[in-house]
């Protein structure tokens, strides 16, 4: 009887500890978010201190550097959508509507989500690894002793770069995804190029682009923030770099899906 009661108390204590730990993480997230907003204020007043050459390198790596993998993945996703759609639509003799399916799914949903997932595994992980390594090498401490906020110097350029580059990559991913769909439609369904692009143009509305671009903006911020957050929280050993990278990727991808679900609910409520 006493033993069982002790077990119950231990389980409750463990639950309490877990809740407190989660709450502590949320407080850290809120704290970093606040620091990023303050650093943005400093930037707008022209007082933010960061290395411009490093910031430009981050912009290039986050944007142009990701074009290859974004192209490949979105081309294939566009093609896959067309394949899956074609198989079902052909049963109803509605093969030509594959263009509608691919264009709406790509522009509204897939280009933004798939690009964000790719960026989480590529750029978010790189941010986490870089900052965690700097933590281990005492480079962050060196910045602090120079009176420079690591948030201003490291986090702000990364968050801004990826937040601004992701919508551009999204626009590019839309074009590549539609191209993938066209390749399948033209090759498998004998749909003419003219008809495919005409149907796509008819099916798409400005709201689809606005929705996709808004999502990609939020995804870019989230992926960069997750990478920097886990990098800054990392311990000071080699294993910590791996752990930070894994956490950044996992939280980035999960966050993207959660935000996408929130967008879907909002879009449904607003009848967009």
């Amino acid at each position: 009887m006493i033993h069982r009661r002790r077990e119950r108390i231990a389980a409750l204590a463990a639950l309490g500890r877990l809740a407190l730990a989660r709450f502590a993480v949320l407080r850290e997230v809120a704290s970093l978010l606040g620091e990023v907003i303050l650093a943005l204020g400093q930037l707008l007043r022209g007082r933010a201190r960061f290395d411009r050459a490093d910031a430009w390198a981050v912009v290039q790596a986050s944007g142009a550097g990701a074009l290859g993998v974004v192209s490949l993945v979105n081309l294939l996703v566009g093609a896959i959508l067309a394949f899956v759609g074609a198989v079902q639509l052909l049963k109803f003799g509605a093969g030509m509507f594959v263009a509608d399916l691919v264009s709406i799914a790509t522009v509204r949903e897939m280009a933004a989500v798939i690009t964000a997932v790719v960026l989480s595994g590529r750029t978010g992980a790189a941010f986490a690894a870089r900052i965690a390594t700097m933590q281990g090498n005492e480079e962050i401490d060196a910045l602090k002793t120079l009176g420079v906020s690591p948030v201003e110097f490291l986090v702000l350029p990364r968050v801004l770069a990826l937040t601004l580059m992701t919508p551009l990559l999204y626009a590019y991913a839309c074009a590549v995804g539609l191209l993938g769909g066209w390749a399948v439609a033209a090759g498998m369904l004998d749909l003419s190029t003219h008809l495919y692009w005409d149907r796509s143009a008819d099916a798409l509305a400005g709201t689809h682009f606005v929705l996709g671009a808004s999502k990609s903006l939020a995804f870019g911020f989230l992926v960069a923030f997750a990478g920097c957050f886990h990098g800054l929280r990392a311990g000071r050993n080699a294993a910590a770099v791996g752990e930070a990278t894994t956490r950044a990727v996992v939280s980035g991808i999960v966050g993207v899906i959660v935000i996408d679900a929130v967008f879907a609910l909002c879009a449904y409520s607003l009848d967009i």
Partner: peptide, 10 residues
């Protein structure tokens, strides 16, 4: 610093 803490990209 103990490990020098030089910025590796500079």
């Amino acid at each position: 610093f103990q490990g020098s803490a030089l910025f590796s990209t500079m």
